[in-house]
């Protein structure tokens, strides 16, 4: 099995995640797109680990999954908190960072 195909799939998934971030205005969906990007990255890492026969890729995937878990916990908590105050999770409504 050629590693290239896995990489290609990973790139496709990543691009889709990017498009999701850019297209969707629902904050939760944006979040999910980010997760998709992370998963695509994981796939690439695992594929490379397989290619090189090195466990380092696996470890990075492990770390990414852990970080993603933490990120999701905090991110969803943020979304909940924002929704409480603004009653919206449309990211176009969240413009407090306007310079």
């Amino acid at each position: 099995m050629q590693t290239e195909w896995f990489i290609l799939l990973s790139v496709i998934l990543f691009t889709m995640g990017v498009l999701g971030v850019l297209f969707r205005r629902n904050a939760i969906l944006v979040f999910m797109s980010v997760e998709l990007m992370l998963n695509a990255t994981n796939l690439a890492l695992v594929a490379f680990a397989h290619q090189w026969g090195s466990e380092a890729g696996h470890l990075f995937v492990f770390f990414i999954i852990t970080v993603a878990a933490a990120e999701v916990a905090v991110g969803l908590a943020l979304i909940v908190a924002i929704f409480r105050t603004k009653h919206s999770i449309n990211i176009d409504d969240l413009r407090q960072m306007e310079g």
Binding site: R25, L29, F31, V72, L76, I79, V80, F83, N90
Partner: peptide, 17 residues
Amino acid sequence: VLFIFVIMLLGADKLDL
């Protein structure tokens, strides 16, 4: 599960505007 839980909690399943 957490995602779905939050979506359900906020009722944000059809918010794309």
